[in-house]
Structures are given as structure tokens and as C-alpha cells.
């Protein structure tokens, strides 16, 4: 059975970070990720760590929620760390049988690990402090200039928010169909991977049919409530930049200046 899928994994709290305009958070997170890509020096990572740590403290999100972000990627992280550790050539510090661990290898692994973690924790903090709805409206607002080239900005945002709304309903429905099939002797557990995939076909077919029916109903209900695209549409809670957004940008610019300064002062480690 599919268990509760929580997308966006919003952590409900009232903090200055929660109250920031979602656009501010989106822009800062994006720029922060880029900054981690450009610089590869321990000093910069320490700066990024301090920045992230203070943001997390202000956001009142418990550390264990931020750490949960590692859950889906820990295996890849360990695997790439080991690859880097064992297969980087250079001056050996430790060798036994055929295994050589070099100083460069340790350095590179450490940098790579800290960069990944800083990236994951940073983007995690954004999704933990922003509801999917606010994130969608931020995307819609930031992509507005693309309307000039007839990019369907409003439509995509509307599709995203409807998808988010229907995920729990469809998960629920999948469970219902699976239970209905199980009660009539269907077997989803045994056999190899191909058999398991094949046994899901009788679940997917009714699920698709019902999803299409729901889509038809929803389209009619939306039309009945005067939906006619983004033209002339207003919002109940329009996004507005406040003073705290200015403060957030100021802190972030300070961070950027610091890392640019340090990044140029300390020679970059290539690798």
C-alpha cells in the first residue's frame, strides 16, 4: 500500500522566514545554490554554512526536519564519497593492499560532501517554510516576463496547484482500488520485478479512467465558477514585497560579498 505522501513537506510555524515573500525565498535559494557551484573553497563553504545556520535558527524549523532531506539521497552520497576517496590519485596518506587514499582524495570528498549537504539543506529550508500554494504563485509571478514570448505562465501555475490538490485524492483512490483487487485475490507482493509491475496494470487502468472522469468534472466545475484563464483574474492574497524582504536581500548580498571577497583571496582548489 502507498503510505501518506506529503509533498512540499511544509513545516507550520510562524517565523520571519515563513513570512517572507515566497519570491524572495525562491530568488535567494536559487542564487545561494549558484554560489555553491561557483566557489569550491572551504572558507566559502563555512560562510554558506553560517548563513544557512542563522537562517535555520530564525526559521524555527527543528534541525531534524532539515536533516530528513538527506533521506532519499544518502546512498548516492556515500557511494560517490567512497568513489572519490579511493580513486583520486595523488600523494598517498594511507595504503593497504590495493587501496590508496590520497590527501587530494580526502580533500575532494570533504568538499563534495559539504557542498551537497549545503545544497540539500538550503533548498529544504525553502520548501519547509513555504506552502506549495505560495511557491506556485511565486513561480507564476517570477515567470510573468515570459508571457511576452507567449509562454503559458498562468496555465502552468494553475496546473501545478491542481496537481498538488489532487495528489492525496488519487493516492487515496489507488489504495481503494488495490484493496478492492486484493480482496478478489490479486497479488501485488510476490514474484520478480516484472511480475510486480505487470500486476499493477489492473490498478492503473481504473485509476486512469477515474482520473480522466475527475478532470472532466473539475473542468466543468471551474467553468461554472467563471474560470476563463488568467485574463482579468485577481488574487485574494496578492504577493507583496515588505520591508523584511529588503532585509533578507540585504543579508544575502552581505553573504555574497563575503564569499566573493574570500573566494578571490584564497586560491581555488581545482578538482
Amino acid at each position: 500500500m502507498i503510505r501518506d505522501i506529503t509533498l512540499g513537506k511544509y513545516y507550520n510555524a510562524d517565523s520571519p522566514v515563513h513570512r517572507l515573500d515566497p519570491r524572495t525565498k525562491l530568488i535567494i535559494t536559487f542564487a545561494y545554490l549558484i554560489s555553491l557551484f561557483i566557489y569550491k573553497s572551504p572558507a566559502v563553504y563555512i560562510c554558506a554554512f553560517i548563513f544557512l545556520l542563522s537562517a535555520t535558527l530564525v526559521s524555527k524549523v527543528p534541525f531534524k526536519y532539515i536533516l530528513k532531506g538527506l533521506k532519499p539521497v544518502w546512498f548516492i552520497l556515500i557511494f560517490t564519497s567512497l568513489m572519490n576517496l579511493f580513486f583520486t590519485g595523488g600523494e598517498p596518506v594511507f595504503s593497504w593492499w590495493r587501496i590508496n587514499i590520497s590527501r587530494e582524495g580526502i580533500e575532494r570528498t570533504g568538499l563534495m560532501l559539504s557542498r551537497f549537504m549545503l545544497m540539500i539543506f538550503g533548498s529544504n529550508l525553502m520548501t519547509l517554510t513555504t506552502t506549495p500554494t505560495r511557491l506556485t504563485s511565486a513561480l507564476e509571478s517570477l515567470m510573468k516576463p515570459l508571457k511576452v514570448i507567449h509562454f503559458p505562465v498562468h496555465e502552468i501555475a494553475m496546473m501545478m496547484s491542481i496537481a498538488l490538490r489532487f495528489i492525496p485524492i488519487l493516492v487515496d483512490e489507488t489504495n481503494k482500488i488495490m484493496k478492492a483487487q486484493l480482496s478478489r485475490g490479486a497479488d501485488f507482493e510476490s514474484g520478480n520485478i516484472f511480475r510486480k509491475v505487470k500486476s499493477l496494470v489492473p490498478v492503473l487502468v481504473p485509476l486512469f479512467i477515474s482520473a480522466f472522469r475527475r478532470a472532466g468534472d473539475l473542468a466543468m466545475a471551474m467553468e461554472a465558477r467563471c474560470y476563463h484563464g488568467g485574463e482579468g483574474r485577481t488574487q485574494m492574497n496578492p504577493l507583496r514585497y515588505a520591508r523584511r524582504d529588503g532585509a533578507a536581500f540585504a543579508v544575502f548580498i552581505f553573504y555574497i560579498i563575503t564569499i566573493v571577497f574570500w573566494g578571490s583571496l584564497i586560491p581555488r582548489i581545482t578538482g
Binding site: T131, P132, C226, H228, M236
Partner: peptide, 25 residues
């Protein structure tokens, strides 16, 4: 009831109609 609610919060859904009509915030 499931197939006619558009918003992710109760109040967002109720706001959907007036938003389409272009009513001020």
C-alpha cells in the same frame, strides 16, 4: 464534492470564483 474543489485550503477554494471575476483583493 471532491471534484469541484479547486483550492488547497478551504478559503482559497471559496476565493476561486471571485478571483475569476476580477474582484479586488
Amino acid at each position: 464534492p471532491d471534484n469541484q474543489i479547486v483550492g488547497q485550503l478551504v478559503e482559497e477554494d471559496v476565493a476561486f470564483g471571485p478571483e475569476n471575476l476580477g474582484v479586488p483583493a
